[in-house]
Design a binder for these strands. Structure first.
Lengths: 115, 115
DNA sequence: CGGTATCCTCAATGATACTG
DNA sequence: CAGTATCATTGAGGATACCG
């Protein structure tokens, strides 16, 4: 596997590439919430603890640019924006599920229980 | 799923916890190389492109602290250190494989080929 | 309501030098 | 050989203010 470039950034393996698409602190939590329903910006913000407006916006934009979600703006007052997961996003959810299950398994193994 | 703490850091979901254990730029590449053979520090360094000495050392320490690898130091001159993957590390490899396959799939979908 | 635009901070990472 | 120690850099992310 050779090196390659995407959006001006170098990648050295497919894992790194995948994690830049759906990794980071916020992308999986966002995709997870969109997996079974369409949500508005403000709903996502209320539903995801500790996320800032800036992070929610930038992460949604990246997910949109990479084709994981679709953004639909309604021309109403006050504004209304809906985010819908795509087929590609649903495929990513399968990977998130694997990681999530693994996380739970690890936490169990390490004796961590939610407080 | 409530919040919980590990090593003094707060986590808000199992995905975040898992990614802190095996995510980041270097941990998966390291585990990947150890999956079918024991390797010395210098072998890892030669085999993983662009990793600095500092990153290799800190990431190996974290993997060791979390029980993914075992470090064995031989009291010889010059020094010799061997890193071996554990059962827990091998379980993580299964997750890495899923992510890696997904990355390859995504790259194909997005028309990215290694140069 | 759903964002932008700025400024700012700090933790992650790199570079370089040194050592048991 | 396998690291540590120190300093410099940078980019992710937070805080705040403003806007169509």
């Amino acid at each position: 596997m050779g090196d390659f470039r995407y959006n001006g950034k170098m990648y050295y393996n497919p894992v790194e590439f995948a994690m830049d698409r759906i990794g980071g602190t916020w992308k999986m939590p966002i995709l997870w919430r969109l997996k079974d329903r369409v949500m508005r910006y403000s709903e996502l913000q209320k539903d995801i603890p500790h996320i800032s407006q800036k992070m929610l916006t930038t992460q949604l934009r990246e997910l949109e640019d990479d084709g994981f979600v679709v953004r639909k703006v309604y021309a109403v007052v006050p504004p209304k924006t809906e985010y819908t997961i795509t087929e590609r996003g649903l495929r990513a959810i399968e990977v998130v599920k694997v990681i999530r299950n693994y996380g739970l398994e690890l936490m169990d193994e390490m004796g961590i229980n939610d407080k």
